[in-house]
Write a protein that binds this DNA or RNA. Structure first.
Lengths: 349, 349
DNA sequence: TCGGCCAGTGAAACCGATTACACTAGTCTA
DNA sequence: TAGACTAGTGTAATCGGTTTCACTGGCCGA
C-alpha cells in the first residue's frame, strides 16, 4: 500500500457545467484499462492486443467518446485545420477555388478556416486568423501586399501562396500562367481583324493577373507591328460596370472604332457586350470579344463568350495538396507550380 | 526551505522542436510576476495594479507573446470558431452569404470554418467538422436533410439553421420569405399579360425555396382564375442549362406559347432568355421574364433581368449575430427571423 | 493599538489528452 | 535453466494556460 492517509473514493468526473461528453478516463474505466491504452487504441493500435482493443472500442462506442481536440492539440500541436485567405468570396472565381479546396481538404482529413480581406496592403486577415491553431495557410495574393506576405512568413507554418509575386523562404507557390492563354486569345483576335483596331480593357492596374494579361496583349500587337498600342490599353476593375462604361465611351466617341476587344476578365467582357448590344453593334460581326476566367457568366451570355479558361478547381486542389505535403514533411523543398490557361473559342469572336 | 534534495536550476523551456514561440511563463519571468498575474492582465485586468499590468504588457510585446489557444480552450472550452455548412460555395448565392458572415464574425472576434456538402440527406459535413472545437454552427439547409439536422442537434452547441423546414429544439432559425417577393413578381407578370400564358420554371422539386416560389405562382394564378395551372409549372434545377432546355422545348413545341415566365432563380431566367434570343423571341416584347435572387448574372444579362432580391448579405450577417448571441447567453429563447424578398423590376418584364 | 477589510499577488490544482519510462509475464535461445 | 528479448500494459510527467484559495501588507475605524 503506497499511502495510508490518502485513499480517495476513486476520483470521479468533475461536473463541468452540464457537459455530458465523456472523456478518456471514462472509456478507460469502462473498458478496465488505463487511459494510456485507450490513447494507444486510437493512435497506434498495433501496440495493443486485439482483445483489449476490441473492448476499448466497444466502450468508446457505448459512451460516444470523441477525443477533446484541445487536449490533443496541446500535445501534438496540430489541429487538422488549414487557413485560407482570399481577397473576397464574392464572385464565383474564388467560390470555385474554395469549393475544390474544401473537398480536397476534407479528403485529406483537414478542415478549412476562411478569411477574406479585400483591401490591398492589409494583413488583417492573417492577423485575425487564429494562427496558433492552424497547421497551414493558403493565401491568394493577387495584389502587392507585403504586409500580408510578411505576416504569413512570420507565422512559420506551412504556407502556400497563390498568384503572389513575392517569394517567401520555404513556401510553396502556385502561379497562373496568364501569358499563354492571353497570347492565344489576342492572336485569335488579330487573325480575324486588324491589329490596329484591337483594344484591351483590363482589370485593376496593380493586380498581377491584370498585368500579365495586358503585357501579353502588348506583346502580340508589337509582334504584328501595330502602332499606338498603349492608347488601346485601359485599366479599371474586374466588373461588368467598368466594361460597360468603357465600351459606351469608346464605341461612341472614338474615331478609330474597335473591332476586337480582349477583356481582362469575363465580367468586363460581359459589360462590353451589353454596351455593344445597346448601341446596336453586332457581336461578333462588327465587334469580337474575348474574356478571361471561364466563369459561369461567360457561359450565360449570348452570344456565348469566348474566354480563357482558368482552372480554378485545379488551383484549389493543388494548393491543399501542396500544403498538406509540406505539413507532413516540412523539409522537402518548396515547389512552384504553374497552372496553364487555355483559350476556349465560342460565339463572341 | 521546502526541500533539501530538490533544487533544480529553475526549470527551463523544453526545446519543442524549434518552436520559438514564447509561453506565459516566459512573460511572467520577464515581468517578474507569476503566470497567474499574466493571465489576469489578459483576461481581467481590473484585478491587477496598473504598474504591474504595464510591465506585463511590455513583456508580452517584447516577446511577441500569443496565448496558446489549445491550452486556453482546454480550460475555457471555447475557440472563437464558428462552423458554417453550406450546400456548396460554387455560385455567388452562397458566396455572398459567406462574405457577409465572415465579415460579421470577424467583427465579433470569431473565425469561420467552412464545410460544404451538396448531397441531400448526407450529414458528412457535420460529421467531419471538428465539432468539439466549435463554439457554434450555422447551417444552410434548403433541402430536406434529417440526417444533417439531427446531427447538428446532437452537437448540443449553439446552432442557427437557415432555410430549414425542421424545427430544432433550442435552435435559432432564419427563413427566407419567398412568398412575398414571388407573389409580387407573379402579380407583376399577370398584370401585363394573360394569366393563362404564364409559366413557372422552377428549381429542384425538393428544395424548400423552390416549393415556396412555385406555390406563390400557383396561388396568384388561382386568384386570377387561371386554368390548367399545374401544366405550366415545371421543376428542374437551379441552372442556366435547365432554363435553356426548358425554353427551347417549350417555345418551339407548345401550342399555347408562353408570354411570361417566372423563373425559380436567375440562372434559370438567363437560360430562358438565351433560348428566346436564339429563337428570335423578343424579350420583353413577346416574352416577359422575372428571375429570383438578385444575383450578379441577373445584372449582367441584357435586357437586364427583373428579379426578386434575396438579401443574402443580411442573412449571413444575421446568422452570425444570432449565433454569437446564443453563445453569449444560451438561455435566451431561440428566435426565428424571416427575411423579406423584394421585386426589382428592370428591363426583361 | 487592535481587528477587519481590501487590493494585489503567488502557489498549486486542474483541464484531457499523449508518451517516456517502468514493469510483468511469457517465449526463445544457448 | 538462466538470461535476453518481446508484447502488452500502467504510472506519471507533460503540454500551457485559468482559476481557486491562501497569503501579505496597508489602511481604516473603534
Amino acid at each position: 500500500m503506497r499511502s495510508v492517509y490518502n485513499t480517495p473514493v476513486k476520483k470521479k468526473r468533475r461536473s463541468t457545467r452540464f457537459s455530458t461528453a465523456s472523456v478518456i478516463s471514462d472509456v478507460a474505466d469502462r473498458a478496465g484499462v488505463s487511459t494510456a491504452t485507450v490513447s494507444r487504441v486510437i493512435n497506434s493500435p498495433e501496440l495493443v492486443a486485439d482483445a483489449t482493443a476490441e473492448r476499448v472500442r466497444r466502450a468508446m462506442d457505448e459512451l460516444d467518446y470523441r477525443p477533446n481536440l484541445f487536449a490533443k492539440g496541446l500535445i501534438t500541436r496540430s489541429t487538422g485545420v488549414l487557413g485560407v485567405i482570399l481577397p473576397d468570396f464574392h464572385g464565383e472565381f474564388y467560390g470555385a477555388l474554395l469549393q475544390a479546396a474544401d473537398a480536397e481538404a476534407r479528403r485529406a482529413g483537414y478542415n478549412l478556416i476562411v478569411a477574406s480581406d479585400a483591401r490591398p496592403d492589409s494583413a488583417d486577415a492573417a492577423q485575425s486568423l487564429p494562427v496558433h491553431f492552424l497547421d497551414g495557410v493558403i493565401a491568394f495574393v493577387p495584389f502587392p501586399n507585403d504586409a500580408l506576405v510578411r505576416s504569413i512568413g512570420d507565422l512559420s507554418i506551412s504556407a502556400v501562396l497563390i498568384d503572389a509575386q513575392q517569394e517567401l523562404e520555404g513556401t510553396d507557390r502556385i502561379s497562373i500562367d496568364n501569358t499563354s492563354g492571353a497570347t492565344a486569345a489576342v492572336r485569335h483576335l488579330v487573325e480575324r481583324t486588324d491589329a490596329d483596331d484591337c483594344f484591351h480593357v483590363g482589370g485593376p492596374e496593380t493586380n498581377y493577373d491584370s498585368i500579365d494579361r495586358a503585357e501579353a496583349f502588348r506583346a502580340v500587337l508589337r509582334e504584328r507591328g501595330a502602332s499606338g498600342i498603349d492608347d488601346r490599353v485601359a485599366s479599371g476593375e474586374f466588373s461588368i460596370d467598368w466594361g460597360y462604361r468603357w465600351a459606351l465611351d469608346t464605341l461612341t466617341t472614338r474615331t478609330g472604332r474597335p473591332t476586337a476587344v480582349f477583356a481582362g476578365n469575363d465580367d468586363i467582357a460581359v459589360g462590353v457586350l451589353n454596351a455593344a448590344r445597346q448601341l446596336g453593334v453586332a457581336c461578333p460581326d462588327r465587334l469580337r470579344i474575348v474574356g478571361f476566367d471561364g466563369s459561369r457568366v461567360s457561359a450565360a451570355s449570348s452570344p456565348k463568350l469566348s474566354t480563357v479558361q482558368v482552372p480554378l478547381a485545379e488551383i484549389g486542389t493543388k494548393a491543399v495538396q501542396m500544403c498538406v505535403r509540406h505539413i507532413a514533411d516540412p523539409t522537402i523543398n518548396p515547389s512552384h507550380a504553374v497552372v496553364p490557361t487555355r483559350l476556349a473559342v465560342h460565339d463572341s469572336s
